[in-house]
Design a protein around this nucleic acid. Sequence first.
DNA 1: CTGGATCCTGATGGATACTG
DNA 2: CAGTATCCATCAGGATCCAG
Lengths: 115, 115
Amino acid sequence: MSQRQPPPVEAGPYRSHCAIARTLDLLGDKWTLLVLRDALFFDVSTFAGFCQRPEQVPTNLLAARLKKLVAAGLMEKVAYQQRPTRYQYLPTAVAKELIPALLALKQFGDNYLQD
Amino acid sequence: MSQRQPPPVEAGPYRSHCAIARTLDLLGDKWTLLVLRDALFFDVSTFAGFCQRPEQVPTNLLAARLKKLVAAGLMEKVAYQQRPTRYQYLPTAVAKELIPALLALKQFGDNYLQD
DNA sequence: CTGGATCCTGATGGATACTG
DNA sequence: CAGTATCCATCAGGATCCAG
């Protein structure tokens, strides 16, 4: 319970001091949380892997979202192979703290939005 | 536990069958969840009330979001006065089911996003 | 061939002015 | 007060291009 947590992340400036508004400033668009879903729940880690998901994110938007998430400290870009260099995008410990929110959104969709 | 729940809501078409993606199709923008936050946590119900919140949503976007939320069954538009007719926007039972997700997002913001 | 960057076009966002 | 209309800036999405 009182274990040390990762440090807060800078991703502002924000619209207001409300924590919900701040979170939405960072994650509140159509793709960012989907990328995190794939990284956290489906173990997707390569650029191509994210592209191949059913929602078909455009490559330019994916590149932009990954950059933003790396800058915000939610994902880490790691080279896992040389010649040619290949990168992996891995969720950080901070990103894992979004799991409860993602599950709550999933539950809402399951229960109240028809497919 | 087994009490009857409100019926599912039509708000598609959706990008995929994933419940998270569906929820994000409906709510995943910078303003929609903020409007619901105000309605659910701060008892805001009038057009002007939403406008006056610290994030200062533009009136055209507020009108569009309220329309969408009413169409999706998450808010109800109710006349509460005649001559001139005044309307209130009230969260439905379905909207209240988003409270856990909003609290999870707030917790993330509180813990990991610096102000 | 993979991982992106670039480009172009239409859609959306945001500020503000205006109207019933 | 409750929205609509307008105008401009930015973003989304798709196609293509380029570098390693």
